[in-house]
Write a protein that binds this DNA or RNA. Sequence first.
RNA 1: GCUGACUUAGCUCAGUCGGUAGAGCAUCGGUUUUGUAAACCGACGGUCGUAGGUUCGAUUCCUAUAGUCAGCUCCA
Length: 645
Amino acid sequence: MGQYDLETIRHSTAHLMVQAIQRLYPNEKIELGIGPAIENGFYYDILMDKKILDEELKNIEDEMKKIIKEKLPITRRVFANREEAAAFFKERGQNLKVELINDLPAGEEISCYEQGEFIDLCRGPHVEHTGQLPTFFKLTTTAGAYWRGDSSRPMLQRIYAISFDSKEALKAHLTFLEEAKKRDHRKLGKDLDLFFFSSEAPASPFFLPKGAFVYNELMDFMRRVIRYHGYLEVVTPQMLDVSLWKTSGHYDNYHEDMFFSESENRQFALKPMNCPTHMLVFQNKRVSYRELPMRIADFGRIHRNERSGTITGLTRVRTFCQDDGHIFLSMDQVQNEIQELMKIVAMTYRHLGFEDFSLALSTRPEKKLGDDATWDQAENALKDALEKSGVKYTIAEGDGAFYGPKIDITVRDAIGRRHQLATIQLDFQLPERFDLTYMSKEGKEERPIVIHRAILGSLERFFGVYLENIAGAFPFWIAPEQAVIIPVNTEKFADYCDSLYAKFKQKGYRVRIDDRNESLGKKTRESQMAKIPFMLVIGEKEVEAGTVSVRKYGEMQSQTMSLDELCAAFDKLNEERNPIEMRYFWIVRKIFYCFQGEAQPNMKSPLSLQATSKNALTKKPFPSSLLSLRKMANGIWKKIKKKFF
RNA sequence: GCUGACUUAGCUCAGUCGGUAGAGCAUCGGUUUUGUAAACCGACGGUCGUAGGUUCGAUUCCUAUAGUCAGCUCCA
């Protein structure tokens, strides 16, 4: 077994699966599509009138194991050219294979692999005989899949399987699936009373008080971040005349996925995005080159009538809110701004617990506006900015938006799954369509460029990904309930609990007294299951000593702390409301100015301070420990003051 | 939108090969005032997603429809 790589094993196992299906359903006409190895396993697409049911998958597995025992030799058979191969498969009624063969280059040899009665068009390689195949596979689901991924072509039955070369690897994967299931944001949302869905409003979440708290806190967090970076927030209408969407091009491209409304013979559309309203904001007054880059932010609600089959949980919904922003700027400002944006992305994600992310440059799609020369310019501008930042990126050919290329940022979560969240898009089209201009230094009208950007992307989607990443255990600063006070005896210790509660309340912490007539064990269990960061138990000992018994979420032990110690701990944790860069910016800037000689009036972004940081996405711009940063800053500042002032 | 599956009490789930349903938790009432993951007793709670059809009779079978889930296609 060891001599074959996993991909070969998986692919051979896919052949094995189809052979088993043919044996189990000898009276069905089965046409084979393709059956590649994929991450964690393989699938095979087949065309067969009879639908394979989930409960039949076990039979197929058993049949596969039988064929393994038969140790059928797998042999390669070569046709001289594609005509010969096509004729062979045509005769066997394998029309899908004939189509594949006809797309292969003419005049080249074409190979097949056969094992026993089974033969399949295949490039190979394969194992030598079926007995070499490990049994660490499991057929998981059946699903429909369009032939060659084309929704206008017939739909085949796809059978998915997971497959590994060792028992341990299979087990590890099953554990992973279990873990993912436990973290599923839909489950956590229900268990933690964060949000729910109603059939009255398909694909539209209702955020309950706790969920709404987190939702708003995430939004406030982004507000602080973008204010700090010079954005101006606007509030724009929900419903706008259809003509606006025709101007922007959204009507032509997406009217099937938009919601419309009519009033007094005027057609309106619920906004599916904020861009056009921001174009109107820009047009509102004469803009000077001095105001560029003009950064407009918007947390407006948007509606998209997503196809019914595409919606799931919070990840794809019909009404949502983006931490949206548009930057109007001149060509020579693009590179700086993009680099800066990537720093904001890095700062935000690192702070929210996503350390690992990757970038992809998406280029022009088939359905696009504007000429190729403009696209060249836009794509090159993004490429230059990426190169200048020295970050690694991949290229996603044809994945751009219809109005411009984009950089998509994909984060890796705590259990290794990837999610595309942030996006930075360059747009030469909308300024043209809305005839936007600003007054240049020379007193001429110039056309600005627009950058569309969202850091969290959709708040709803981010909420889901974030929830899964932290497995429902919110950090202190964003937890809707930060601590629960539990008296051992609700009557005897009420006064002490009340005074504790008043103290936390006055400091703005979100604390609750659990004075229900229930056992301490039950209250402990519930506070742990609700994943509340702190549990504070008050009994005889605590009242007498003026202390609190503190148990952190997830820890088995509690510790005794004085009230002052506890408050100090809370205050320290609460500092995490802001990223470290923002917390200590003023101290660091003082130092920076001293080194620079004088303050730069134009220094709009504090992140440009990171002059020494070669790679914004991998290097920590500041010491990661709060204390060491504070020490460093204060130390340097003292020295400077002593020497120069 | 396409393929397939699912929908029983607020939640998690049993069950009826066609004779109108059960448990635990939650909720409410009572007893209990408890030292770190479920005290005890009792009560309430469902036209079995919705609408048709077949049947003496449907939650169960059939059809349609809605919502949800997996996958495909799509994702400004």
